[in-house]
Nucleic acid binder design. Structure first.
Lengths: 251, 251
DNA sequence: CGGTTTCAATAACGTATGTTACATTGCACA
DNA sequence: TGTGCAATGTAACATACGTTATTGAAACCG
């Protein structure tokens, strides 16, 4: 919950009353899932909207011959498909990566937000639009960037998204993805992901071991990934980027 | 305008009154643009929402060194970013491909739709969600499919989107994209796109010349592109796919 | 704790696709 | 009715990345 509010507040300030509404929605109907299980499967009818309270998950699509593409990562504070229940059938699956805690948000909750809480509704639209922007950036990433740029770019994105949710500590963060996960997300083979990670390590751009990632110099990693943070739309009205994100954006 | 309504009616039936509302919005503030000009540039503040009345356009992103990725095509009946004006700055550009006619839809129009026309609002949400699904499918396409599959897949998608807007005639349609456009959209080089098109032609999957595309056997092209139309969510309540799209979906 | 599985690392080799270069066709416009 | 530029087509060659295979080190687990 805290992660969601922190993230949304990168865009609009929410009142204590609005915090309370989100808090309440996020504390009823909470579930816990093990790692590496499907939360939702392609072909199913969308039911509730899910809010990730803790843990990492991903959306993915698969071809009949087994080729698999992770199309996005879901981090704490992320909402899966605001209004997704409008569609009759899921066109992709959602799977947990780590153990995950989720809150199921009802259709009625969104109806009420739409009718009575315009600032929250706007914040949810922002979430929706940023997710669309992220998906466009992934298209760019897969279509144009080299393996090294692509991997560095993905790491920057995850880093910034985690930091918006206040899930980084100093220069490091939890990083539960395996090289196979990174391969599925970048469209590279596992072997090549391994080569690229070695290269990033050798260049001093990352320190990655035992599920912890450290980024000693984010600006340098961003340059390596040709990373421009504009698509994350982390700017709140009447403010550009705060002190913490200013040097981040410096590039 | 007709294209928009036809497309939306693949999802919900709209009343004559609702048609009239859309018609009115689409006839005030109409502009015409030449081919190959920018409609919107990355970095600008989003203003109105644009509805494509005729012609083709695309969203694209560019790296400093000139690498360019088309992240989506905008066809007649497409709306650019419902509620996009919530964001402070565009993270991509929109450029025309052919001559294009657009209607600028005001923020107030969307406010009114949200407040008073829930069925249209739902239809716009459907449009938003389908666009997100398309973007995910492009991620899959670039990350996992071979050059031939990828190209065939893109052609299938464009074909179906055009047919929803009733812009195909029999087995053929206008197709103004150059091989360079296709290259920018598929992440392939122009030379390789040319090779792949030759291959598709040789296999009898497409006939493409002088800006006209014919697809003699859509089911076969779909198989070549590992194309599953589910992500376009062309199904209306109480109906699966109509006669026209049934054989399309047959695969 | 010993066995089993997952994950990471590395090597040898193969190939799909990129690059550069140039020829040809087609079409806009003078 | 040429003339010029954009678009398409082709060939020779280069390379980034994929594939298969093997090994070692963690993590898991009964």
């Amino acid at each position: 919950m805290a992660s969601l509010i922190r993230k949304l507040e990168h865009f609009v300030r929410l009142s204590p009353a609005e915090h309370a509404i989100l808090d309440r929605a996020a504390t009823e109907r909470v579930r816990k899932l093990g790692p590496r299980v499907d939360l939702v499967r392609e072909g199913e009818k969308p039911r509730d909207v899910h809010l990730i309270l803790s843990g990492w998950a991903c959306r993915y699509k698969q071809l009949e011959d087994g080729r698999r593409q992770v199309v996005s990562f879901l981090l704490p504070g992320d909402i899966c498909d605001v209004n997704g229940f409008i569609l009759r059938e899921m066109d992709h699956s959602i799977g947990s990566i780590t153990q995950v805690t989720i809150a199921d948000l009802s259709r009625e909750f969104f109806d009420e937000v739409g009718a009575r809480h315009p600032r929250i509704a706007t914040a949810f639209w922002w979430e929706t639009l940023v997710n669309a922007a992220i998906q466009r950036e992934w298209t760019m990433n897969l279509g144009q960037r080299t393996a090294l740029e692509r991997t560095a770019h993905l790491l920057c994105e995850i880093w910034l998204r985690l930091s918006m949710a206040e899930l980084t500590r100093g220069d490091n963060c939890d990083f539960p993805l395996t090289q196979a996960d990174l391969a599925d997300a970048t469209g590279l083979s596992k072997v090549h992901v391994n080569r690229i990670l070695q290269e990033l390590r050798a260049a001093g751009l990352i320190v990655l071991k035992s599920k912890t990632l450290a980024v000693p110099d984010l600006a340098r990693l961003m340059r390596a990934g040709l990373f421009n943070p504009n698509y994350l739309h982390m700017d709140r009205e009447g403010r550009q980027l705060d002190a913490g994100s200013a040097d981040i954006a410096a590039g």
